[in-house]
Computed example of a mutant assay.
Amino acid sequence: YQATARSIAQKFPHVDYLFVGAGTTGTLMGCKNYFAEHHPHTKVIAVDTVGSVTFGLPGETRHIPGLGTSRLPEIFEPSGIHDFLSIPEEQTIKVCRWLAQRYGLLFGGSTGTVLAGIQQWAPNIRPDDVVVTISPDMGERYLETIYSDDWVSQRIGAAALHPLFPEIALALSA
């Protein structure tokens, strides 16, 4: 509330959508409360990982650390959140790997999950909307996990190694 949300509001005076990852939900709750009070037009979209119980979905095995919980955080209060998205780990991996291959950006699993959420929500975003997200982690801690073909194949499945945008991958390799 006092730091992250206030900083976002100072940098971006008008925000249509704020996408926030849901781990312990501290950042999510602070942002939701701040924007509800100071910028009520901003729609806060929570992004979580499949297998997390935060939004009442069944708990499942999760392999990528960062987002998601095995028990409901005590501080979590869903009222005021515009919507929430639940992203499969396969999609997180595809987004992270695509950003690394296409742009040389090495992001971590939490960031990849939130960016996959924005990708999922994209049909709802108008061209003039201001979209802000929080990128909570970089990819150096994930070199032996989401950036390892063996690790991904063993834990998530070989389908996660397929390119996010096959047509772009073909063009780049030509």
Rank of each mutant, 00 (worst) to 15 (best):
F12C: 10
F76A: 04
I75C: 12
A36E: 13
G117F: 00
F35S: 08
K94L: 07
E37N: 08
W151F: 06
D150K: 11
A3C: 13
G59P: 02
P73N: 03
A171N: 09
V47L: 00
A22L: 04
T133R: 04
R71M: 14
F107N: 15
I118D: 02
Q101T: 14
H63V: 07
A122G: 05
A3N: 14
T69E: 14
Y34V: 03
P163V: 01
F19Q: 00
R6C: 10
D137K: 03
T69D: 11
S70R: 11
K11W: 11
F19E: 00
E77S: 14
A171I: 13
P127T: 08
H162G: 12
S173A: 15
R102K: 11
A22I: 04
L106W: 07
T24V: 08
D149I: 05
S153V: 09
Q101P: 05
E144A: 13
R155S: 12
H39C: 13
K94I: 08
V15S: 06
A159I: 15
I87T: 01
V50C: 06
A22W: 01
G108Q: 09
V95L: 09
F76K: 04
L164G: 02
Q2L: 10
G66L: 08
Q120Y: 09
I93D: 02
S153W: 04
A36S: 13
V95C: 09
S79W: 10
Y1P: 10
V15D: 07
Y147I: 11
T145I: 06
L85R: 00
A5F: 03
D149M: 07
G139S: 09
V15A: 08
A5M: 04
G23C: 03
L161E: 02
E77M: 15
T25W: 01
I93T: 05
H82K: 06
V53H: 00
I87V: 07
A116H: 06
I45T: 01
I168C: 10
V50L: 09
G157M: 02
I64L: 12
P13N: 12
E60S: 04
Y1S: 13
T42H: 02
A169Y: 06
P78K: 10
R71H: 11
T92A: 05
Q10M: 14
A174W: 14
Q120H: 11
R71Y: 13
T113I: 01
V53G: 01
A160R: 06
V131G: 02
K43S: 02
W98G: 09
T25K: 01
L57K: 15
N124P: 05
L143I: 12
G112N: 07
A46N: 08
G30H: 02
V130L: 05
G112W: 02
Q119M: 10
A116I: 08
V114W: 00
V15Y: 05
F165E: 15
A171R: 15
P40K: 02
E140N: 11
K32W: 04
N124E: 11
A160E: 07
L72S: 13
A22S: 12
L67K: 00
R155L: 14
Y17K: 05
A122Y: 08
T42K: 03
Y142K: 07
Q91T: 13
K94M: 08
E74R: 11
V53R: 00
K32G: 06
K43I: 01
W98C: 11
Y1I: 12
C31I: 06
